[in-house]
């Protein structure tokens, strides 16, 4: 039982570090990386807490969280990929107009 508590604390510290990384990020992709790592660690944290408190039905929450975390990640990346592409198009469009 003690080892489960130790794993909970370890995963919590990793989540805090991932969030700190997301806050301190220099590029927007660092933020997404921090949030992605936070999400996967939350799935593990829910599973370990489920075992620690002796309630195995937490695993359903962990499954749903893993699914949503992945979908959210791909949605954010799809969004950023197109806005980045549009920015490049705006630059080229501007050059055509100005030149």
């Amino acid at each position: 039982m003690l080892i489960l508590a130790a794993t909970c604390i370890a995963i919590l510290s990793v989540m805090i570090l991932a969030l700190a990384r997301a806050l301190k990020a220099d590029t927007v992709y660092d933020r997404i990386l921090g949030v992605n790592m936070f999400g996967t660690k939350t799935v593990l944290f829910i599973a370990v807490i489920g075992f620690f408190s002796g309630r195995p039905d937490f695993l359903d929450i962990a499954i749903v969280y893993a699914l949503i975390n992945f979908i959210g990640m791909i949605a954010v990346l799809r969004f950023f990929e197109y806005t980045a592409a549009e920015e490049q198009e705006d630059d080229t469009a501007k050059e055509d107009r100005t030149s």
């Binding site: 130790a6 991932a18 990384r21």
Partner: peptide
């Protein structure tokens, strides 16, 4: 469990 916790902490340190 101990190994898993250790690797996740090294990952977080690697992030920084």
């Amino acid at each position: 469990l101990v190994l898993g916790a250790f690797f996740s902490i090294t990952g977080a340190i690697g992030l920084f």
